[in-house]
């Protein structure tokens, strides 16, 4: 399956990348599994403290399921307001 990935704020800067589309191997079916798989080539995904995620623009936990065509974002805790 293929998904669209977005990175924001300090994570975007650390990766030097704002978005990418990627083909996932079988078995990568949750946000947490995706993070672990991506961290092999994007080390900051493993080291960002309190990393947050969203699936299709909704906050999602690491246990959340991902499906073909999803938009998945990773970012540090939010600091607006």
């Amino acid at each position: 399956m293929s998904v669209k990935l977005l990175y924001f704020a300090s994570l975007r800067e650390a990766l030097g990348l704002a978005e990418e589309s990627i083909e996932l191997p079988p078995g990568v079916a949750t946000v947490g599994a995706l993070r672990a798989w991506l961290a092999k080539r994007h080390a900051p995904l493993a080291t960002t403290k309190n990393l947050r995620a969203a699936v299709n623009q909704k906050m999602a936990g690491m246990e959340a399921a991902i499906r073909d065509g999803d938009e998945i974002a990773f970012f540090p805790p939010v600091t607006g307001g």
């Binding site: 540090p76 805790p77 939010v78 607006g80």
Partner: peptide
């Protein structure tokens, strides 16, 4: 609304100081 905006709405602040720029920590 402000309390939830601070923790749930995806905004991120980066501060510029004379010593350089830094992302604000939650």
């Amino acid at each position: 609304i402000m309390d939830y905006l601070k923790t749930q709405a995806p905004f991120w602040k980066k501060e510029e100081t004379l010593a350089g720029a830094r992302w604000v920590e939650a």
